[in-house]
């Protein structure tokens, strides 16, 4: 076991993790943050996407030991301090970008990482940023629309 300290959604946490644990299992099991999901476990589906030090990563492939000293954001941290939904969460609801919801936390976090860095993306840039997030329900159109709408919203 190794002791690691990192920040999750603004809160510092210290815990012991197994050397072969991935960040996803630490979030899900140790911290009981169930938003990030395990889909493929091989970095191909994106359901486990969280943000580490400002960039989207697949937490199933991220060694937990490597999270030490870093800043992690998960979908649970998106709700604004006022209690209202983050613009991305709002537009995902408004545009019908959610069906079964399994991919949604990963989708939203990939989109957030994009908008944090490029507040004004075009449709193609949104598609590239979300290419690693697989959705088997919606057909993606509503998801891309929701991200573009959130970008507009966040500029206000």
């Amino acid at each position: 076991m190794k002791t690691i300290t990192f920040t999750v959604n603004g809160n510092p946490v210290t815990l012991d993790v197994s050397e072969d644990a991935n960040l996803l299992s630490v979030l899900n099991d140790d911290l009981e943050l169930a938003g990030a999901k395990e889909g493929c476990g091989a970095g191909e589906c994106g359901a486990c996407t969280v943000i580490v030090d400002g960039v989207a990563v697949t937490s199933c492939l991220y060694p937990a030991c490597e999270a030490d000293g870093r800043v992690v954001e998960t979908v649970e941290g998106l709700v604004l301090e006022s209690g209202s939904l983050h613009p991305l969460q709002r537009t995902f609801v408004d545009y019908g970008a959610v069906q079964c919801g399994f991919c949604t936390p990963g989708m939203v976090m990939s989109a957030k990482a994009l908008l944090d860095k490029y507040p004004n993306p075009n449709e193609q840039e949104v598609k590239v940023a979300l290419a690693g997030n697989i959705c088997r329900c919606t057909g993606y159109t509503q998801i891309v629309e929701a991200v573009l709408a959130a970008a507009e919203e966040m500029k206000k």
């Binding site: 191909e44 989207a56 990563v57 697949t58 990939s110 690693g132 997030n133």
Partner: peptide, 9 residues
Amino acid sequence: VGSRQVRNV
């Protein structure tokens, strides 16, 4: 290479 999440790492 891969997805943006993979390219980030």
